[in-house]
Design a protein around this nucleic acid. Structure first.
Length: 270
DNA sequence: CGAACCACCTGACGGC
DNA sequence: TGCCGTCAGGTGGTTC
């Protein structure tokens, strides 16, 4: 589910509603993917005030007013959603957070890959430092330089490498490559400087356009308000195998590459 | 160092 | 109807 635009959307919605609010109750419905585990997790949160909620890479960071924070990863199927007071616990719900103004947020995760960790500011800094540059917070030239990874890896593998650029996932890697006219399976080292600049420019564009649409709901992604993202109909290759390329009309192909479904137009992308 | 492969877990979907 | 294989937006570990 969530890549940079989806996590950004959720972070903004959460921040708007719970920044400045204090946690007055936490119900842990399914344990095992939180830390510290179990009642210690609840104790670590109770009474804490949320300073702000923000995104870094694909992580959600809830910073508290006391040099601690909760860091979460949604992985494939995680979600956060505002729920009403009479909300009935769903099958995949993991936890409920209740704030001092009555606002309630549920954390759910069908495949249970995601996690929430309550950690110190130092640990947060250490965790965030393992990620590369934010694609929307640096100039194209700097990002293009960061993408000059050594070795023989392909362009798609490089885009998915979180240590270079952070937050790009399968959908937006494919979309950026199509917009740039570059085949995702090409070796990174075959790109010219201009190729890299073009790729990054299109990557920024597609990420920004998707954020405006509150993300892509390819399967079951919904934002914190339970709404589907609007970017699905604007995708040019992802999920469009067998359909005509919006640029040239030729059929979009789907192959397996770096263990992922990879979509491209054989005509437009060289 | 990197590439290939598996694992984590559940659900949806297509074929038989 | 139902059983089985395949696939899914993300990492993380192991092996070669």
């Amino acid at each position: 589910m969530p890549e940079l635009p989806e996590v950004e959307t959720i972070a903004r919605q959460l921040n708007a509603r719970i920044a400045g609010r204090r946690l007055v109750a936490v119900e842990l419905w399914r344990t095992g993917r939180e830390s510290p585990v179990g009642t210690k997790f609840v104790q670590a949160l109770l009474g804490r005030r949320i300073e702000r909620v923000f995104r870094r890479a694909k992580l959600l960071v809830f910073s508290f007013d006391d040099s601690r924070a909760m860091v979460g990863h949604l992985k494939m199927t995680g979600r956060f959603a505002f729920v009403p007071p009479d909300y009935v616990q769903g099958k995949h719900d993991r936890a409920l957070f209740v704030f001092d103004d009555g606002c309630r947020v549920v954390w759910a995760d069908v495949r249970q890959f995601g996690y929430l960790h309550v950690i110190s500011s130092d640990e947060v800094a250490r965790t965030l430092s393992t990620y590369g540059l934010e694609p929307l917070e640096h100039p194209v030239e700097m990002l293009a330089e960061a993408l000059r990874l050594p070795g023989t890896r392909t362009i798609k593998a490089a885009l998915l490498h979180q240590g270079a650029l952070a937050g790009v996932g399968n959908i937006y890697a494919d979309e950026a490559c199509h917009r740039a006219g570059i085949r995702p399976t090409r070796r990174l080292r075959t790109l010219t400087r201009n190729d890299r600049l073009r790729l990054i420019t299109h990557l920024k564009d597609v990420l920004n356009e998707s954020i405006v649409q509150k993300g892509t709901s390819a399967n079951d992604y919904v934002d914190a308000d339970g709404a589907r993202g609007g970017f699905l109909s604007l995708l040019r290759v992802y999920g469009r195998e067998g359909e005509p390329c919006r640029s040239c009309g030729h059929v979009i192909k789907k192959i397996a590459h770096v263990q992922r479904g990879t979509h491209y137009c054989p005509t437009c992308q060289k």
